[in-house]
Computed example of a mutant assay.
Amino acid sequence: MRSDNDRKRLSGRRSLTLRLIYFDGLWLTVRRLPAVQYQALWMLGSFILRNMLIAAGFYAISFGVGSMKCCVWQGLSWFGL
């Protein structure tokens, strides 16, 4: 059984991974923006997709396999650094 500190560290690592996915997706979106015909639609679609991925990731952290409900707030704070 994992200790509370191990769960918090794992939650932090997962949150940082989600943060990388989110901001890398944003970087790729902005980089591709000049070549796209419908820029507003591209930005909106990217925003929705990135937020769906992040919501699914935080749901998996808090309620998935090896759920860490105690660490959700700590994970959210790591994401917002």
Rank of each mutant, 00 (worst) to 15 (best):
Leu10Asn: 05
Gly75His: 13
Arg19Met: 05
Leu41His: 04
Leu26Asp: 03
Ser62Leu: 02
Lys8Cys: 05
Gly75Leu: 15
Ile48His: 03
Phe47Tyr: 15
Cys71Asp: 04
Phe58Met: 08
Thr29Val: 09
Leu41Glu: 05
Asp24Met: 03
Val65Pro: 05
Ala40Asp: 01
Phe79Glu: 04
Asp4Gly: 00
Met43Asp: 02
Gly80Gln: 04
Arg14Ile: 15
Lys8Trp: 07
Ile54Gly: 02
Cys71Pro: 01
Ser46Pro: 04
Phe23His: 13
Asp6Gln: 14
Ala55Ser: 08
Ala40His: 00
Asn5His: 00
Ile48Val: 11
Gln39His: 09
Leu81Asp: 13
Gly80Ala: 06
Gly66Val: 11
Val36His: 13
Leu81Cys: 12
Leu10Arg: 10
Ala55Arg: 08
Gly12Ala: 14
Ser11Phe: 02
Ala56Trp: 00
Met1Leu: 09
Met43Phe: 07
Ile61Phe: 12
Asp6Glu: 13
Arg50Thr: 09
Cys70Thr: 03
Trp27Gln: 15
Leu76Gln: 04
Leu28Met: 05
Val72Glu: 07
Cys71Ser: 09
Thr17Glu: 09
Cys70Ser: 06
Ile54Thr: 10
Gly12Asp: 12
Asp6Cys: 07
Ile61Leu: 15
Val30Ala: 13
Val36Tyr: 14
Leu41Thr: 01
Ser77Leu: 07
Gly66Ile: 09
Lys69Asp: 07
Leu53Phe: 05
Leu20Phe: 06
Arg14Ser: 12
Asn5Asp: 02
Ser62Pro: 02
Trp42Leu: 05
Met52Arg: 05
Ser77Val: 04
Phe23Glu: 09
Asp24Thr: 15
Gly12Ile: 09
Asp4Glu: 01
Trp27Tyr: 15
Leu20Pro: 03
Gln74Trp: 10
Arg31Asp: 15
Phe58Ser: 01
Ile21Ser: 11
Ile54Pro: 01
Leu49Asp: 13
Phe58Thr: 07
Asn51Pro: 00
Leu28His: 06
Phe58Cys: 10
Leu16Ser: 08
Val72Met: 11
Val36Met: 14
Tyr38Phe: 06
Ala40Arg: 00
Leu28Ile: 01
Val30Phe: 10
Arg14Asn: 14
Ser77Thr: 08
Ile61Lys: 14
Arg31Val: 14
Gly12Leu: 07
Arg32Trp: 12
Trp27Glu: 15
Asp6Thr: 10
Trp73Asp: 04
Arg19Gln: 03
Lys69Tyr: 04
Val36Thr: 14
Ala60Gly: 00
Cys70Asn: 05
Ser15Gln: 06
Gln74Ser: 13
Ala55Cys: 06
Gly25Ala: 11
Ala56Arg: 00
Leu18Ala: 03
Asp6His: 07
Ser77Met: 07
Val72Phe: 08
Arg7His: 10
Asp4His: 00
Thr17Pro: 01
Arg9Pro: 01
Met43His: 01
Asn5Ala: 03
Ala40Gln: 00
Ile48Lys: 04
Phe63Glu: 06
Asp4Ala: 00
Thr29His: 02
Asp24Asn: 15
Ser46Lys: 08
Ser77Ile: 05
Lys69Glu: 08
Arg9Cys: 02
